[in-house]
Amino acid sequence: MDELLDTTDINAVLFDLDGTLLDTADDFIHVLNAMLAEDNRPVLPSPIIRANVSNGSRAMVTLAYGLTESAPDFHAYRNRFLEYYAQHIEDQQRSSTPSLYTGIPELLTAIEAHNLPWGIVTNKPRDLAEPILEQLQLSRRSSVLVCPDDVRRSKPDPESLWLACEQLDCEASRCIYIGDHKRDIDAGRSAGMTTIAALYGFIPDTDNPLDWEADYNAEQPDNILEWLDDNRWRLPHQ
């Protein structure tokens, strides 16, 4: 009984998308190198692209073309990348299925078995996120999807996480947020949530996720389920 006095109920579990729920690195690699080949530029090694996936389309343009956002051609290249990416997702729907990380299906099933809602808060645009979730048959299972389209300030600002809580009618202090980037952990901490760093995601060698000060670091999705079980599906008081 004393142990339970030092814990609180979990209201919801929220996830980042790329690098946390989904391993979408191959999609980014395919699209970016297709653009480079079309422009008669050398393609980039897969590990270099993979390490930058969590930074999104802007990082892809900078990585491939050496352009900053202030460059005149930057947004044209970014829009082209997004168009190619959207077409790739459409083609993929006809030929293959995106990859959930090993252990994620079991984790989602366990969350649902405990009658807890789970959802996604991502910096991926909605028109790119929704088709993937539909293909994976996660749209109806996920209780909330918040994208940059829905807020004025995306992560690392906590606005998108607070919006998810509002839509779920739950308290931020009783939510868990899981992500593979420092901005995810910063957003979760600023929102007042318990944070879990997904160390299995797209983390560059130059980053040290231990410096992010997440409440828990998960080497694999299985570790998240183990942590929840060890804590009896309750949150330790911070």
Rank of each mutant, 00 (worst) to 15 (best):
D2K: 03
L4H: 10
L5H: 09
L5E: 11
D9S: 04
A12K: 02
A12I: 04
A12Y: 04
L14C: 14
D16H: 06
D18I: 03
D18H: 03
G19W: 05
G19K: 05
T20F: 06
L22V: 14
D23N: 04
A25S: 11
A25K: 04
D26C: 02
A34P: 13
M35Y: 06
L36C: 14
P45Y: 15
S46V: 14
A51N: 04
N55L: 15
R58A: 01
A59Q: 13
L63M: 11
A64Q: 06
S70C: 14
F74T: 05
R78M: 12
N79A: 08
R80D: 09
Q87M: 10
Q87F: 15
Q87A: 15
I89K: 00
Q93R: 13
T97M: 12
S99P: 00
L100D: 01
E106T: 01
L107V: 02
L108Q: 05
A113E: 14
N115G: 00
I120L: 15
P125A: 07
I132G: 00
L133E: 01
Q135G: 00
Q135S: 03
S139Y: 07
R140D: 15
S142E: 09
S143L: 13
D149F: 05
V151T: 04
P158T: 07
L161K: 00
S173A: 15
I178E: 06
G179H: 08
H181K: 09
H181F: 09
T194I: 08
D205N: 08
D205V: 08
N208W: 05
D215S: 14
Q220F: 01
L228R: 07
L228G: 06
L228N: 09
N231V: 03
R232I: 03
Q238N: 08
